[in-house]
Write a protein that binds this DNA or RNA. Structure first.
Lengths: 354, 354
DNA sequence: GCGGGTTGGGAAAAGGTTTTCTCAAGTAGA
DNA sequence: TCTACTTGAGAAAACCTTTTCCCAACCCGC
């Protein structure tokens, strides 16, 4: 109690800097000795005034640390430079790269993103959409965890543009998805180039549209290349199913595959582990390709897994840009646009013979 | 060209519903035959008027589908009901549940969340923070991928409150992290209750603070229980390191552990696989516990992995609520608050003997 | 019938910015 | 010297809501 009072820091530096209100345009104008109208025009490069005046105002603004209030601007311009991102895959693996891509594309244009996780809850979805509408977002991007399911929200009669990415679009809307068929073809072609001839396909449940899309493309690609077509094995998206599929493919006496194209990386992981346990060498005896290119899985398999990457970040970018042009008044062609996949080659397929 | 023109849909239903401006309070007031002031008060339950008038205005608003413009409200109230969420872990595993928790806590209070991914780019971070400030967010939550690193942004002298969750807080700020020591203790105690006595610890690089925190707690818990303390094995966060650690622990002639507590689920996965390959049974011969409870990994190990869950969603919720009370003017106690972990029991530890 | 209190509702300012319009002064041409 | 432009800058409306007065009408008791 008796000691010297603690040294006081200068008021500007100390304690709750909160509530010190931001500098307004009015203050800048006053400091520069002009009207707010002139100040506004000076800072925006509008209107007519001497270069000297403009510069003086700008300098004043800079010194005062003036930053225009976007709320006021938005109110006037009827454009908030804000979009909503709706997803039901917050924990999942797909929406993340996608969100990063979206955010990426938009930030460069000064647009911020409201992230909204609606789970599979209709009420929550409605709540979020209304909140976004109230906040006057310029548009909405809807994304999810599978492309053959709707989000639990009705986005069809909003007064703002909506873009769907990696989720089922409403009819007549703009939708972006990965080209799964192309991805499957990429895998088959890669195997063919490496001289593999008996290529099996192990994928997820038939209830997923992508499973059928990829399976069809797989069959078509085999036929085009005059390779023997074997029926795809459809099961679950799990490692366990990969194990089981290997038991079926390599358990019997019939001719064994020398390549397995898997519907996702977890199945591929299961396949590779099961093959190893059977003493079948990857990639020497059998090549394996996964789907999704989930790095954490693909790089942990032994050997590291070659996988089809859906380019989700790019897809997100495209979605962001599409929404932007829609917001800008450009009429975008409705319908579903498919973006190409790419093959990320690691060591699970081996090198070309010779 | 000669055919009948396509049937026209009614104008209200058709084409670019865009740009049809939202209903304003003024219109509601006009329709109800009152002034905007009265209309505002009617809808907000303020002011004095006959119940009949109030009800009539409300009904009119309902019919017209009036929704107040939050931009205008925010401008006036100097409160945007919007917060920024800053992360450098967009692709990662930690920020997602955390973000969901934050978003969860805030949505219930009508607050929306701007998601900003700053990667490790200082410039990008600055950009985002300024954008958020310009948009007049009420506060900021900073989160990251490890608790001993700063985000590449300076949040220390903002005029709005900041809460740090799962990232290193600035001195004097409010920070929330998981109780890693407690989590480690949870694991050791669980092993002890199951009768395991020789408990090893395999973790990530010593350069991570959590590695040391957990290792210290592990040692302390062993000592408290009069169990033999063996030096933790520190390496990488990978499956590969799990394999290698097993080689070291079970390769030599010395006494082998009957339990392994791992620094994350990937290491644990590697440990379990390596044990199986050596013919050591899990959980019969050796129990294994992981950390993070990354379900997709924990449930794919054979047997499924018991793991320490950091309760990140709860942590996010707490962060959201803390920020909310800060924004509301409640002075929150600065400093780091640790939230308890929980053990998610699966089958990798076995049941109690007898 | 009249002062004082209550009741129902409106006018107007405020919030920060942009934009259109207006206006005074200056310049050029006749 | 007068007219016709141009130039530089300000006033004011607009965006939409909230809130603080303010005012008229009514009711009460005397």
């Amino acid at each position: 109690m008796g000691g010297p009072a603690p040294k006081m820091v200068s008021d500007a530096e100390s304690a709750p800097v909160f509530a010190k209100p931001p500098v307004t345009l009015r203050e800048v104008a006053a400091a520069a000795g002009v009207s707010v109208a002139t100040a506004s025009k000076a800072l925006n490069g509008q209107g007519r005034m001497t270069a000297e005046t403009r510069e003086r105002i700008r300098e004043t603004a800079r010194i005062l640390g003036f930053r225009p209030n976007h709320l006021a601007q938005s109110l006037l311009r009827k454009r908030s430079f804000t979009v909503g991102l709706l997803t039901n895959d917050t924990y999942g693996r797909f929406s993340l790269p996608l969100m990063a891509g979206v955010s990426d594309a938009l930030v460069d244009n000064g647009v911020s993103v409201f992230l909204c996780n609606v789970e599979d809850d209709h009420r929550l979805g409605q709540l979020h959409v209304e909140a976004m509408l109230d906040k006057r977002v310029d548009g909405i991007i809807a994304t999810g965890k599978r492309i053959d399911r709707h989000l639990p929200v009705d986005l069809s009669n909003l007064r703002i543009p909506v873009v769907y990415a990696f989720t089922q679009p409403d009819p007549g809307a703009v939708g972006l998805v990965s080209d799964d068929a192309g991805g499957a073809r990429l895998a088959v072609e890669h195997f063919r180039r490496l001289g593999r001839r008996r290529i099996a396909h192990v994928s997820g449940p038939a209830s997923f549209e992508v499973v059928n899309t990829r399976a069809d493309a797989y069959r078509a690609a085999l036929q085009e290349n005059n390779l023997p077509v074997s029926e795809p094995l459809l099961g679950a998206w799990s490692e366990g199913w990969g194990h089981e599929a290997v038991a079926r493919l390599f358990g019997g006496g019939e001719e064994r595959p020398d390549a397995v194209f898997c519907g996702n990386d977890q199945i591929a992981r299961g396949v590779i582990d099961a093959l190893r346990e059977r003493g079948i060498a990857v990639p020497d005896d059998v090549g394996v390709i996964g789907f999704d290119n989930w790095e954490i899985v693909a790089e942990a398999t032994r050997p590291p897994l070659t996988s089809v990457d859906m380019n989700l970040a790019a897809l997100g970018r495209e979605a962001g840009l599409a929404l932007l042009s829609l917001v800008g008044g450009q009429p975008a062609a409705p319908g579903i646009r498919k973006l190409p996949c790419r093959l990320v080659v690691r060591q699970s397929c081996g090198s070309p013979p010779g």
